[in-house]
Amino acid sequence: MTPRLHPFTTLTLAVCAAVVTTAAAYWPLSVAVALAAVILAARHGIAGRVLTAGAVILTPLCLSLLVLHGLFFPEGQTVLAQWGPARVTAEGLGFALELGTRTTACVLVFLLFSFTVSVPDLVSALAGRRIPPQFGFVLASTLTLLPAVAGRLDRIRQAQETRGMVGGRGLLSRLGTLRLQMVPLVLALIDDAGSRAQALDARGFGSPGPRTSYREVADPPAQRLFRAAALVFAAAAVAGRIMASWPAGAAS
């Protein structure tokens, strides 16, 4: 079994991977990072979840990139096809590919992080760094919100079906069903939040001042060193990128 990584180590890794990929702006690297994220997800047994969530986020994004840059790229010289004002240029497609793979890599890396990180460890680590506990709570709630919303939506659907609602298979019918579920979902979530807020207040959550942490998260020196090195590497990558493009930017 691999030794457990401190949440800050995995977070640093994710941030550095995203920064370096962005700084390099080299699509083969982006593809390699994205593939590495998928392989790691598969090893954790969460490839399905990461890819599904990734598809939901990336499909519309990549399509819009393709339409925006593939069809309308003013700097494009090599015209592959043209319909009125819309021109498909090789440069435009290249740019869309560059941007698309880079975004895909970043999104997959952060999804991998959010699906693998131990939320309690992360919150506890954040509290230990004197980061306001409210921040940690919001972060933890955000990461646990999706399952909570899915659970609540499931219960509303069951309640509605129990009273005669038959969900159709068509898109329109599904949208209609979803519309019926959205209002109760939002109201229920607000109501839950309201009742929980009173309990949180009573348990001293809103009060200012220092906090302690019951949960101890091991942070071996080797991991601290590794994080520092990774951050230096990422900073170097950004610096290198700026230096590489500076004269070109100044000359143009």
Binding site: P120, A127, P133, R196, L200, R203, F205, S207, R211
Partner: peptide, 17 residues
């Protein structure tokens, strides 16, 4: 609190704060 992973941590939540 709904953000604590174990019964022990949930018990300690108010003390942490």
């Amino acid at each position: 609190s709904s953000v604590r992973a174990t019964v022990a941590e949930e018990l300690a939540f108010g003390l942490e704060n």
